[in-house]
Design a protein around this nucleic acid. Structure first.
Lengths: 213, 213, 213, 213
DNA sequence: TATGAATGAGTATTCATTCAT
DNA sequence: AATGAATGAATACTCATTCAT
């Protein structure tokens, strides 16, 4: 009996996951408005009604997808960063984890950006939660940067500003993958990314550092 | 007679521009699918049919808007960059011009990202053209970087990779403005951006530069 | 063996009755279209499939309910009327029985009217049978009235017309209970009803009776 | 110009009325749930979208229909009744007006009863308003009856009860027309109805009047 | 025999686009 | 040229019914 129940539960989970995966791919490929629930049903090989027995609505399905993946992202990055101790290593780890996550979840890239893109005034659930998660990630980054600035490792710039900058920089990196994810060279890209963030692109560092507001 | 015609032509141009401006605002605020042509007509203070006498379809209006603005962007950045001679100055100018353009056209930020977001396989006209324009901008950047690498100003990295990186980095910077465009501190942001790109975030440059592939 | 079978048969009957009762309540409360078979299953505490093993379809369940209750009504009224001998008493009994039946089956009031309401051209089974039952009831009434007219007890009006009138009048009485069934005053209402049907509302009967076509 | 505008206004009114008439017929024939907006469009010879440009939704169209007709009914009956002075004449006029209205609007009979039928707890707009109008009509009737009871014209029964009774009786009369409206004999039916209400069905009034609670 | 997950036809509503005035 | 009423294809979602377990 127990076995039967768990087998059913497992099958149900599999079905849900099959829908989720198909939906994620379709949302990513076509955007929210360009795919129909009918198409999802066909691609996921379920009847329309079956989809609706697992998810309340198209929006709710979308929300669930975004929310789940974003939470994964935040957890993944947080764990990786916490495994390091020095500021420099933590920053490197942050970059590495964020880029790695998106590299492993290329479909999510579009979702992530299309959601962040949506006008904030609309305050749809998905957007709201995603922005909350982004905020959580930012807060974690700010802590590291504040410590780095205080102990003289980093340039003395307002930590909040620096946070926005680094969040943006890494987003931009990922964003460049929308057109073409570099299949094999993640290691190289990572190396370059870290280097640029930490040391800049000039071969010979400038002798005199500028003043920072 | 000539005058009358030119007055009419001017009026027509004004009308078109009024529609364009309203449309750009709406596209930016709400996204392509979240407003109706009826709403556009009402906001632009024209009849529905009038809009359609100037633009073939909603998509075509959208395409036109994206295409025009992107071309403006490319021209603006190219001109600014060409006004400088040294590699460092040109890179600084590139960053400055790109960020300035988006700072002055905040509505365009969403359009730019939402379009780039749309899946490339779809090959809708707007996306296609926008990507062509992006390619043009990238090509310009690659030239500069190649010269910089060759003359020893920049770290010896594959120029194509570095291009993608810098395009992504600047995109990311702009992207961070979607949530909140910094009204007054563009100068400061620019200073920081340039510094980070060129010198990195470490206060004391690392003594030994790593090897680059 | 016999016993076991009869126990099963009894259990089955109980199950069917539980479904019928729940269904009757739901049909009456919400109307045919405003509740789902799922809701019925939940309220009757059976699985959806179980309902369908006892009733072919939602419509057929509805039909069965209407048919059964209407047959009860006709039988009840007929029996009561047949227990009297004089015309006046029979008419009083007809009124009394009809009103009493609906008073005891308030849920059925809505069912009765909503069904009669449905367009006759549609010829759905339930409507058809209900109308047959109504016809049976009417026929019984016509007999009484014809005798009453013949023997000079009643005003000399076409019996068919008078039948329709009295059917309508009693329906109307019952109909007024849809909004609020008078809990305690059935006796009083009955007294008034009988009086009005037989003697009218004027305190002093008009001296000269009009001619009737 | 004025003319053109009024012509358009008139055409628009005609169009709306054509939709209303078709809708009233369909609602009456099939009930709310058994007809589709598509069918309405086809029967009214308009495109689906056109229907929606005149009415917000199926429900709103339904509400509008019920509300309008019911108001007509109440106004019509009120005006007729007010044109008489004696109690007896007013009661006769009430019966006459109510029956005449439904005789002239046979489609409305079903709507009227199906709406009154709908469970009151649901409190849908249409039901609510219809019941308000019914209440208004009842109130008017109560006034007349109270005066009649006071001045000794009518039997001494609680006026509220008598109101419910007479409302029910006339409803019942109309209700009997659902199955078959008597095309030619309205005058006769009216005569009989009035007679029964006022004098009852007994040819020889009973000598001793019963006591009334 | 009982269950309830899966099915998919059916329906209200929206909105880009057309075209008679 | 300008207007906006009319059009109807497209789409999210519901719910009676089936059937494998």
């Amino acid at each position: 009996m127990d076995k039967a129940i768990s087998r059913r539960a497992e099958e149900k989970l599999n079905r849900i996951n099959q829908i989720r995966d198909t939906a994620e791919r379709l949302f990513a490929q076509k955007g929210f408005f360009n795919f129909t629930m009918k198409e999802l049903a066909r691609k996921a090989e379920f009847a329309l009604g079956t989809i609706y027995s697992y998810f309340q609505s198209k929006s709710q399905l979308y929300d669930t997808l975004i929310e789940g993946k974003t939470r994964e992202l935040v957890n993944f990055v947080s764990e990786q960063v916490m495994s390091e101790t020095t500021i420099t290593k933590q920053l490197e780890k942050f970059i590495e984890a964020k880029l790695t996550f998106f590299h492993q979840n290329p479909d999510f890239i579009r979702l992530y950006f299309s959601e962040t893109y949506t006008a904030p005034g609309q305050s749809q659930p998905a957007v709201f939660r995603l922005q909350q998660q982004r905020a959580a990630l930012s807060a974690r980054l700010t802590e590291i940067l504040e410590r780095g600035i205080k102990d003289g490792t980093l340039i003395p710039v307002d930590a909040k500003t620096l946070t926005r900058v680094l969040m943006g920089l890494t987003d931009g990196f990922v964003f460049s993958w929308i057109e073409a994810v570099p299949e094999k060279s993640l290691a190289i890209e990572l190396k370059i990314a870290k280097h640029i963030f930490l040391d800049g692109v000039l071969l010979k560092p400038r002798a005199v550092k500028e003043d920072y507001l």
